[in-house]
Write a protein that binds this DNA or RNA. Structure first.
Length: 288
DNA sequence: CTCGATTCCTGTTAGC
DNA sequence: TGCTAACAGGAATCGA
């Protein structure tokens, strides 16, 4: 399940292997993967063919491929989201199609940039004037690895909310790039229970949580970045980080690495929350 | 405006 | 053995 670190690895892969190439052909194998391109798959193809890739950028879990402008105006982009199973691969054009291949971009060096996505939560769309920041994602907040991310603004905004702290950090308009896995890890490290009310968080709790969110992402990025394959633009959530370093997510019944208490799992937003009942006590009536 | 439930998808696995 | 149900979850959408 790609979160910010995994998307950043993909961005670097595209920057290394696709920048400078011209798109010579486009095949949409499954229209659902371009459903956010409202003009449809034929328009998607026509907009991309002949364009040259000049960069790859990212905000949170969104990634966009920057295109040279053929006419001298503001530049366009291909906006991409991996959803929960999306993968980009750079393959020789003669290589057999991958399982779940949804979109193929033919390049002028004999390679193809391929988008495979089992569950089709992800997808691509053409973003007019989107090279700097696609207008479609202008509502997405900066992520904690962005030099311009503003911790004070985040603290002020989260405290204006009246909801559980995990809901808040999963809200991409408050802070972007955090998914279910790293949310649980950061909350365990801080430690905070996922249902703690945002309105009553202490300043030092918010600052600590932010620090741990950044730490978790930087650690995952350091590990994911080392397992990059030249012809396989990494990747989904199968980085080594998953098996070795998770201390809360997926650890139901296992001992908390701080206190030994069995980790609990609660249903949460149609998914799960993993937490230590001793280190991260559930807020009670009258307490926050 | 904010909050929270619902929906979109498919492959794997647990349970009967 | 074969079927069904649960589960994984990012983010848009909608009702309250």
């Amino acid at each position: 399940m790609p979160e910010l670190p995994e998307v950043e690895v993909v961005r670097r892969g595209i920057a290394d292997h696709v920048v400078g190439r011209t798109i010579t052909g486009v095949t949409v194998h499954d229209v659902r993967s371009v459903r956010r391109h409202l003009a449809g798959p034929a328009d998607f193809r026509h907009r991309l063919e002949g364009r040259t890739v000049v960069g790859a950028a990212r905000r949170g879990k969104y990634l966009w491929i920057q295109l040279a402008d053929p006419e001298g105006g503001a530049s366009d982009a291909i906006l991409c989201h991996l959803g929960m199973s999306g993968q980009f691969l750079v393959s020789d054009a003669s290589a057999p199609p991958q399982r779940h291949l949804r979109i193929t971009l033919e390049l002028d060096d004999g390679n193809e940039l391929r988008f495979a996505d089992q569950r089709i939560f992800g997808g691509m769309s053409f973003s007019e004037d989107g090279a700097e920041l696609p207008p479609e994602i202008a509502h997405i907040a900066r992520d904690p690895l962005d030099p311009l991310f503003d911790p004070a603004e985040f603290a002020a905004r989260i405290r204006r909310r009246q909801t559980g702290v995990k809901r808040a950090i999963l809200d991409q308009t408050l802070i972007s790039g955090v998914g279910n896995i790293y949310a649980d890890e950061a909350l365990w490290r801080t430690p905070l229970h996922y249902a703690r009310n945002t309105r009553h968080l202490r300043t030092r709790e918010i600052e600590s949580l932010l620090g741990h969110i950044g730490d978790v992402m930087r650690e995952a990025l350091a590990q994911g970045g080392t397992s990059f394959d030249a012809l396989y633009v990494n990747v989904n959530g199968n980085s080594g980080y998953f098996d070795r370093s998770l201390q809360a997510y997926g650890q139901e019944g296992g001992p908390c690495q701080r206190c030994g208490t069995p980790i609990r799992r609660d249903p949460f937003m149609n998914r799960s929350s993993f937490w230590c009942p001793v280190c991260q006590p559930r807020p009670r009536n009258g307490r926050f």
